[in-house]
Structure formats: structure tokens, C-alpha cells
Design a protein around this nucleic acid. Structure first.
Lengths: 405, 405
DNA sequence: TGATATAGTTCACGCTTCGTACAAACGCGT
DNA sequence: ACGCGTTTGTACGAAGCGTGAACTATATCA
């Protein structure tokens, strides 16, 4: 057996309580407001057991008793909810150009939000974060800040939580956890942005509890966060999910990662901007009409490209359609290989989904086995999936039971 | 919450025993022969608890007490082993041309083995299997046959266990479980062959207990069985693992699955045989010297191709090297995307690994991030990984604890 | 006012593990 | 032969937990 198992202790007499405590807390979270009797029915425990556990959770201030519910007959149940006063979580999402911070409660509800340009130097990032967090704590002395979740667009080591390599940030071996914990005194969790998005999706919202889901983040690069059997797939070192760098064309253009013809070389925002500016997409297999070498105004941001397309710019539209074609082509690999029930697309590209979606769906329909039941769903960018992910990352640790395997 | 969770009951007072029973049984399996005291130390339970559980396991005839061990000091421990007399498992592996059956004991040790040509008609397969199993039971009246495990090269539905589609067998919607259970009266488990191989690898042998592993089966097609976080990744319907049909070239040759340019179109045994017979591999990107259009004797079996290469046939060698190149190219996707600690290669192709291995390793080294720690390992075909898989498939169910999640 | 229904609590009971005490078994030194 | 130290395996009371029935509290309706 592995070292992990031999270290993990067997079940003791408190194990059942641990399991049921987690079940009750999770059920309260997802069903709140909810009565003890409903919890008992839902989980399959006796009302007496649920009462004991709820008492414990109220002592620990995880849960509070609210008002009474209306029922056609009988005694009115006392409703339970999470104690949102208990703690606030700080979520930080570091993207190549912009870093966003949020304060959220136990229900993942955003209480405040701010953002700033991502510094080029990693050390500057941690010091900026530290001072901003210090200011937040000064300004809100009543709130207990419990923990910080950070998501970054790059590979994060599973054990040290250091950023190993972020091609689109140009950072290598960056430790955010250490300095930030030292500066704030709060525990810090660092996770890959796509993984955080995937966690967010199965943590709350319409796909809460889905067992097999993939989150695909499309921005400067492409990231994939994979949930299989209800768990995040991290791989040995935490490098799993780098499908953005799977090779679509062994002889394609060079990628920041050192390889050639990666998916994200064709389907990322950067790729679309480059394709638009260069006039003719490199190595394109997508049947775009050969455009006359007419000069177009070059764009620097993907959002400009989206706006151009929205305003009817034909070439911008074609570049987006080409992007959708490659996006779909890569998704086929994921759907065939992992057969998730849901694939969520995260990123500005969802703004143009009415244009891109049909192309993606067509390719999926053509190239995925008909037996598949996977749904491809664009997220609403207003909901900030990356930030929801940082919060879910932290909350998940507190709510999830200690598993035996 | 999902339907699954709401149905799953909470932990009761016997849950701890269930968990510990499984831990003890698994520890006996992997460490046998082993003493109660060693088990207690290994699992982290009290000796008294282990004694109680072992007593129960002995009553149920899972475990027997063997001889005494030698120790420098103190009372000699009584050694425990699995009761191999308790039950025999029947494993069946259905490949496009050949079907193999094996009888194994609780230690996955093969007791007898036989094989026959796979009938073209699925109904003929189940009736042949049923009569052969009946003969086995007549011939070995002392043995209790407990269960049957079947692996097939195709997609198997996660819930009905029906074979949904097997391109290389040409079968669709075939139910083996139902008729075979009816004919034999024994429970039958059906699983995709690659999944079974992956289970076998983490069940016993050098990679027992590995949490992240991929088994790649190379024969008429390519199958992938994925273990992530110690669990088989089946996807929503059970269709996961079809990376053999991921698209390497959207405009490549047609595949049996209906798509074009699938990985297995380039790297399967069938592909190699076709490439050899056609003289020039279709759509090749691999830098093989243009051969003079010299006619070569055509081969019908991949094994003939291997033999030719072993005897120094240059063209056969080149075809194998091309196969290795594509094999490696596909593996890069898996390694980058899922970052397993181990990838095992299953199939006749391992016979030529001294030739193919270096090519695969080179591509992996070139195109996978240096941070990766994945090892690519050819299995020894003599060990019959597919058959080990069918047995592991059955045993795993009995030894694995009921998990809470 | 009483019947009925539902929510939440109390308590004796059984199951499990724990930890200590104890018996069994063995080697070594005197 | 005997005692001593050491290790294995067992016995038994204590403590934690869920169960399920009985009970209390609270609501609607006739």
C-alpha cells in the first residue's frame, strides 16, 4: 500500500459523527433554510441524531436558527441557515493583466470587490495584496477574515502550492502562499484558475453536486479544470488539466510552453487577436475565405475584437468563428476522452457565444459519439467564475468530510 | 444535491466496522502473510480491534490462519492469509479475433486458462462461454465459482453494463451480462478492456495502490483506462477513456468510429499493418524515407509485422517506428492533460519496445513539460494484463469499502 | 375542546473502538 | 530449571455514536 494509506488511521468511534456532521453541514448549505426534520429525511438519519449534530454545529457557530416555516399541518419547523456572520473569505484571482479581489461570506456571496493591474514582479503582487488585505481588515473591524483563496493561470504544485510555471504571466517557481501567509497571518490556498472554476461549478449554482464536469477557461491561454467522480483531478504533481497545451498539429506555430501547435495557439484570446492582426491565420485548416490583403486596423485587446464583431466587422467575425472551430475541435478530445456531463466555458469569449456556440455544437455533434450526453455551456461572465472558484476553494475544505479510501 | 447522495444513507454505528473491515482485508491481501499485530500497526488500530475483525473475517472464510513467523524476541505471531480455497473467479477477455478465459483464485493467481476464436455473432459468444463455464464447473466440482468478470474492447455502459459500441468487433448494443448470468447463475461484471487493465495495474503488481495511472491498450484499436485519485474515471455514461478516438488530424483518414484522423488510425496494430501493406503511410507526418515503390509481401497479422522487423526487415522496422512516433504523440496529450504517475502500454507492440520505446520517450521528453514525473512503462504481455483486469474487476468489488462522499 | 399531524427532544439499548490488564509464547542469561 | 524481558493475542470495562420508541411542543381543523 501507499504511504498515504498507511499513514491514514482507521475508523474510530467518532468517525460516524465526522461523516454525518459533514453530511448535515453540506445539506444545510445546499438546502438552506431547512428544518431538522427535513435534514433527517434527506440524509436518512434519525431526527434525534440530526438534532444532536445541529446543536454541535450551532455551538461552533457554523449554523444559526432562523424563523419558522409555514406548513399546512402540525408544529412549525425552526429553519436553519449557515451563520454568515461567522467568517469572511478573501478570494484573489491573478490574471496576466488584471488581478481581482473579493470578500465573500460562507454562502459565497460577494460582499465587496476591487481590482488592480497585475504587477510584473511576483514580489510586488504579494506585497500589494498584503497591504490591500490589511486595509480591508481595518475598514471592516467587525468581520472575521478566516482564509484566503488564490487562483492563478498556471500550473500550481499539488503539495507546495507554489506556482511552477505560468507561460502567460512569464513567472516560474513563484511562492505566493508563503509570503502572503506571513504578511497576513491567514491561511492561504493557491490553485490553478481552471481548477478553481471547476470547483466553483460543482460547489454551487446549477451544477452543484455534478460528479463529472470540465471547466475550460479561455483567456490569454486555455486552461482545463477536471472534476471526475466528484473530485478534482490534479495528477501526481498537480500538473493535470494542461489540456490547453495538447498538440493539435505537431508542426504548428510555437507556443509559450515550448511545444508546437498547442490547442491554445489556435483557440485562445491571444490567438484570435494575433490572427486578426496578421490578417491570415497561421496554419489554418479552417475554411475561411481567403481575404484580400486589405489592411485592417490592428487591435490589442480581445475585447476590442469582440466589440468589432458585434458592430458587424466581417473579419473580426470570421476570426471569432475560426476560434470557435478550434475551440470545438479541442473540446471533442475532452468529451470523447472524459465523457463529463457538463463542460463549462469560461472567459470573454462567451460574450460572442451566439456566434461561436453553434460552431462548437456542430463540431461536437459531428465528431463525438452520439451516445455522449455531454452539454457544453457558456458561463455568464458577470458571475465571475474565477472569483467564485477562489471562494469555493476555501469553503470546500471546511465543508468536505475527511474521506477514507 | 444529486439523487445519488440523497439516496445514500448517513453513517450508522456499524460504519466504522465496515471501513475497518475493508482496511484489514485489504491490508491482509497486500501484505500477506501478516500477523494481527502488524496489521494493527499498519492500519493504526488497536490489536484488540484487529483481532475482533480478523475473527469475523475467518468466520466468513475470507481469511485463514497459517504458520508461525520467526521473530528475534517474544511470542511468535500467527500469520494470516487470504483463504484461496474460498472461491474461484472466472475472467473472460473478448478481443476482436480471440477470446480468452481464465480461472483465478482470490490472489489473482491463474489456475487454468483456455481460449477460442471470437464468434462473429454475440449470441454465439454467450452460449459458447456458458457451455465452457458449465464444463469447468463439472470438471472441478470442489471449487466454488463465485463470479465472472468480462472485459471487451469497446464502450460499456456504466449502469446497464451493456456493450454500447465496439467498432473493431462491429458490435452494437450487445448484452453479455444478462444472458451469461441467466445461463450460469453467477453474477457477471462487464467492463471496457482498457479500464480493466488499469484496474489490474493498481490492484496488484508493482503499481498496486498508485493513485493516478493510465493504461493504454494497443491492438486493433487503442483504448485508454484512466485511474485518477485512485478511482476509475468512467464519465457520465461510462464512455470515458475513448482517447483512442481523439482527433490528431481533422482531415486524416476515416476511422471506424465515424470521425477522421483518430489517434488509433495512426498508432494501432491495424494502422501499422495497413501502412506496411500500402507501402506508403497515408497522411504521414513522420519523416520516413520515401521508399522505392518496391513491392513487399503483404502481412495480415500484426505479429507477422513484428516478426519481420525482428528478422531485420527494414520496412517493417520503419512502420513500427512510425507507429511509435504516433503513439508517443498521443501519449503527450494524456500526460500533459492528466499527469499520471504511470502510463502502462498493453499489447503486442511491447514486443518491439526496444525499438519503439526510445522514440516514445524522445517525443515525451520534447513535448511534455519538464516538471512532469510520468513514467511510460510497457507491460509484459506474458502476464496477460487484460485477463488480470477481468479478475481485478471482480475482486475489487469485494475488497473495496463502501465509500462515503 | 378534542382530534390529528408535524417538529423537536429524551433516553435506554446495541454496536464499535479504545485502552488497559492479562495470559500465552518465546529467547536469553544465570 | 528458573526468572526476566519481550512480543503476540485476548478479555473487559469505559466512552462515543446512531437507533427507535416514547414523549413534549406546537400547529390546524372540525
Amino acid at each position: 500500500m501507499e504511504a498515504r494509506r498507511s499513514k491514514s488511521k482507521g475508523a474510530n468511534s467518532e468517525t460516524a459523527r465526522d461523516i454525518n456532521r459533514s453530511l448535515v453541514l453540506s445539506a444545510i448549505r445546499t438546502s438552506q433554510p431547512v428544518s431538522r426534520a427535513d435534514l433527517a429525511r434527506q440524509i436518512g438519519l434519525q431526527r434525534s441524531t440530526v438534532s444532536l449534530i445541529v446543536g454541535q454545529l450551532m455551538n461552533e457557530r457554523w449554523v444559526v436558527e432562523g424563523g419558522l416555516a409555514q406548513l399546512p399541518r402540525g408544529r412549525k419547523p425552526r429553519l436553519l441557515t449557515l451563520d454568515v456572520e461567522r467568517a469572511a473569505i478573501i478570494g484573489v484571482n491573478v490574471m496576466p493583466h488584471r488581478t481581482t479581489m473579493v470578500v465573500a461570506d460562507l454562502n459565497s456571496k460577494f460582499l465587496s470587490q476591487e481590482s488592480f493591474d497585475t504587477p510584473e514582479d511576483p514580489a510586488a503582487l504579494t506585497s500589494t495584496l498584503a497591504s490591500r488585505i490589511a486595509r480591508l481588515r481595518r475598514e471592516q473591524p467587525g468581520t472575521t477574515f478566516e482564509e484566503i483563496g488564490v487562483s492563478m493561470a498556471g500550473r500550481v504544485d499539488r503539495f507546495t502550492q507554489k506556482l511552477v510555471f505560468a507561460p502567460n504571466l512569464g513567472w516560474r517557481d513563484v511562492d505566493v502562499k508563503g509570503p502572503l501567509e506571513a504578511a497576513t497571518g491567514l491561511p492561504v490556498s493557491v490553485e490553478n484558475a481552471a481548477n478553481a472554476c471547476a470547483l466553483a461549478e460543482v460547489w454551487s449554482g446549477p451544477f452543484a453536486g455534478v460528479q463529472d464536469l470540465i471547466a475550460v477557461t479561455v483567456s490569454e491561454g486555455i486552461g482545463t479544470g477536471i472534476i471526475a467522480n466528484g473530485q478534482l483531478v490534479r495528477g501526481t504533481t498537480g500538473a493535470a488539466g494542461e489540456f490547453g497545451h495538447f498538440c493539435m498539429n505537431p508542426e504548428g506555430p510555437a507556443c509559450n510552453c515550448g511545444s508546437r501547435g498547442c490547442w491554445e495557439v489556435y483557440a485562445s484570446n491571444t490567438a484570435a487577436v494575433r490572427a486578426y492582426n496578421e490578417g491570415a491565420p497561421a496554419g489554418s485548416k479552417f475554411p475561411v475565405r481567403k481575404r484580400k490583403t486589405q489592411r485592417v486596423a490592428s487591435v490589442s485587446e480581445f475585447s476590442d475584437l469582440l466589440s468589432l464583431a458585434e458592430r458587424g466587422d466581417v473579419q473580426a467575425g470570421e476570426v471569432l468563428e475560426r476560434m470557435g472551430w478550434y475551440l470545438g475541435l479541442g473540446l471533442v478530445v475532452l468529451v470523447n476522452g472524459l465523457s463529463p456531463s457538463i463542460v463549462t466555458i469560461v472567459g470573454e469569449v462567451t460574450r460572442a457565444w451566439s456566434r461561436i456556440g453553434p460552431i462548437v455544437q456542430k463540431i461536437i455533434a459531428d465528431r463525438v459519439h452520439s451516445h455522449s450526453q455531454t452539454r457544453i455551456i457558456p458561463t455568464n461572465d458577470i458571475l465571475q467564475p474565477r472569483l467564485r472558484g477562489t471562494v469555493a476553494l476555501v469553503l470546500q475544505k471546511h465543508f468536505q468530510p475527511t474521506l477514507f479510501s
